[in-house]
Structures are given as structure tokens and as C-alpha cells.
Design a binder for these strands. Sequence first.
DNA 1: AGTGCAGTTGACTTT
DNA 2: TAAAGTCAACTGCAC
Length: 482
Amino acid sequence: MGKKLNIVWLKRDLRINDHQPLFDAEKSNLDYIIIYLFEPKMMAHFDFSIRHQQFIYYSILEMNKSLFKYKRKVHIFNSDAPIFFSYLSSKFIINKVFSYKESGTLISWNRDKKVYNILKRLNIEWKEFDSQGIIRGSKNRIGWDKNWFNYAISPLIINNYSVNSFNFKLNSFKFNIKDFPYLLEYPNQFQPAGEKYAFKYLKSFIKIRHKNYNYHISQPENSRYSCARISTYLSWGNISVRQVYQCIKNALNYKFNKRIFNSFLSRLKWRSHFIQKFEVDCSYEHSCINRGYENVIYQNDNKLLESWKKGKTGFPLVDASMRCLINTGWLNFRMRAMLVSFLCHYLEQDWRRGVYYMAKLFLDYEPGIHFTQFQMQAGTTGINSIRIYNPIKQSIERDPNCIFIKKWLPELSKIKNDFVHKPWLLTELDLIDLTIPDYYRKPIVSPNLSNKNIRNQLWGLRKNSHVKEESKRLLRIHVRRK
DNA sequence: AGTGCAGTTGACTTT
DNA sequence: TAAAGTCAACTGCAC
């Protein structure tokens, strides 16, 4: 029989500081290895994209740079977790497995169930730790805020690493970068991965970029600079929620900028609040949060859906937002909301027809936030106001000088700003020396009338007794109480 | 200076 | 984290 060891199984916690599983493994006085699994089944799911894999891979490379001096590294394997743990346990005596709990999609819960059963049968303890102030098995939100704050202010874990002397080798399920050459082709318009960059962004936000945070947050161009831009690092765990919280709270200039920093911190809490909803009920990936909203009748026209996906709808701010997202993996909150609203309310598409497409595009994709927020914008929760964004109004208000639009839609770069907001008003005369794509002469749906049908259905259903009952149920489970 | 009126602003409601 | 509609109060202006 093989050697006895402990395992640290990394998931969305790709960092070496403030890391409980790594801390406990180090404390245990038994050799341990750190693993990350590129799981074919998870990677094949509709929400997983190449850019996610690339971010993960580079995050791990960064960890390995830091761990090198301890002769440690993250061992990457190419295998589904259940098979991997079975195999590993046939070669080594696994003492314990350490990991963070994951508030993921149904397939991650099913995977974890299988792993749990395998480990249980082998009498291996799997120690799973809480993260981000999320409560497992929560029945309602009584005391939730207090728990979150307790987490946020609790002392950071100081991870110290001993020098490793154990030469771990496993022949099967080897991850070879040659089999995944695309992982190395990480486009530089995406935010760079890794712990070091997480702190770099956080520090520059604290030092200078926060200044116009409240003022710029809703503007598509200015938000790229004035927002913290920490979401992607939180999603993959390059930085922990409480590291962010405490970094801000302890900043020397915190008390001079309380209003700004507190509005950021309240969003940090909202982030966990949404993940908590999904932790409680991951069926929101597939079903309307309020089941009464399954009865909305959408057009679901394929051509319209394709135009939205490509950013060729004829609504400049919608198209610019989509193309920006495709190219950079990040958009500010308001433009994300507008894209979802446009999809569901103007193009009359069931939210499920766009939800995975956007999951793949967001570099900061976090299932707990994605599905709950997407449905909130689609208007299928029954407990939030139905917010239908007017893409023209947004364009005039949030990108008055058309900086963002012209950046992403070069075909409109020579058009006068007044017309950029409403290009369908251009006459033949205006276009005498210019050619612009047809969809800007005639947008794919009518700018003024096209949201009427879904608006009426969504508001109409509010009076439906099934919807009302569902809303009551949801309030009981998800609404924060002291 | 007071009156009538069109247009604007803001609070509040409805979808 | 919406937008449109409603209504009353207000403003500026002509007479």
C-alpha cells in the first residue's frame, strides 16, 4: 500500500493566503498535496468557457510561483473528481481531504455527492469549510447579516508553508498543457489572473480609482476605471471576501471616503446575499425563481436571439455592450442589466435562451450571482420591481458623448452623436458619403413599442394567485431579517 | 401689479 | 439597479 497523505482540493479558491484548507493541511503534520481538477464533465457544462479555464490556469501558475520556494505546487489533473479520488485512494492512503464548500450548479452538487460517498466508503474524512459568509442549510435569513459581518471582520488566516520533502507522482489523469494549448493563449484584453493582480487592483482602487466610484458606476466607459474591478478575482478566489473587506476598512483614507467605501462594501455584502440564495436553491439555474412566471409566453425568435448574441441589434448601446463583453469579459452592472432586459423584454426571449451565453462571456462568472441576478433583470422573481431598461434613454444618459459606443462600434464612428443614439433617424442625405450596416438603418425591433407585450404579461402575472403564493414563500426564505 | 397660460419640475403611482 | 404616466405646484412671460 502507498504512502499516507492529506489532500487539499482547490475549487474557486485559487490563492495561498487567507486559505483555511491549506492552513489545516499544513497544521496536520502529515504530508499533503494540493490538487486542482480540470473536470471534463464540469468543463462541458453550458456555463463553462475557455476564458474561465485560462483564468484558472494562470491563477494556478501564479500560485505555483509563490509555492516554488517551499518545493510545493498545485498538481493539476484532467479527470472528473469521483473517478480521480477513487484512483488516488488505490495508490495512496488518503487521510483527509480539505476544501471549501461550493455554492455551485446542480452538477457540482451531484459531483460532490458522488465524491462524498466514495470518501465515506473508504472512511476518509472530507473537511469542507465555509466561505464568503455563506451559510449551508439556511432555512431563512434571520441573523444572516450578523453572520456575514462576523465573517467579514474575523481575523485573516496567516498561511505559513513548510518546505515539502515528499515527491508526489501519479501516472494517470496527468494534465499536460500540450493537450490544452489554448490555455496559453490568454488574450490581454482580459484582466490578468492571480493573487498579485487582485491586490494590485484593490490597492489602486483604494488609493485613487475610488474617487468617482458613485458617480461613474453606471456609465459604461468610466466605470471601467472607477469601479474596483475586483469581481473576477473574487469569483475564482484569487482574493477572499474578507481580505477585500478588511483591506478597505483598514485603509488609511477610509474615514475620509466613508460614503464611497461603504457603498462599495454594501455591494460586497449583496454579492454574498445573492450567492446565499443560490446555495439554498440551485434549481434557479433551470427554473423561474417564482414558478408562477413559467407561464409567460415569449416569441423566442431565433434570428433575434442571434442578433443579440453578435451585438447586431441596431440599438447602439446594446450592441456596444455586447461586443465589449465579448472582447473584455467585463461590463458594469447597469449595462449587464440592460442586456438582459433587452433580451427578455424587447426581443421577447425566455431568459434561459441567453443565460448560458452570458455565463460564458463573464470572466467574473459566479453561478450564485449569475442565475439569481439574471432572473431578477428578466423579471421572473415576483419579489422585485420589474425593471425594463430603455436602451435609448440609457444611451443618452450614460454615454452622452458616445465614447463607449464609438469605441466598440467603429462603423458609427463618423456619425454625429445625436444620431448615434438613434441611428434610424439618419436620412439618405446624411449617409451620402457613409455606409452603415442595415441594422442601424432599421433596428431589429421597434424602439418604442416592442417591450409592451412582455411588460403587460410580467405585470399582469403579479396579480396571479400562484405568483403571489410563490412570492410569499420566497420572502420567507430569502429576505434578510434581524 | 395682477392674470392667464404654456411649459417645467417634482412627488407619487402604475405598469 | 426602470420608465412612463398623472397631477399639482411652480416658473417665466406677455399683456
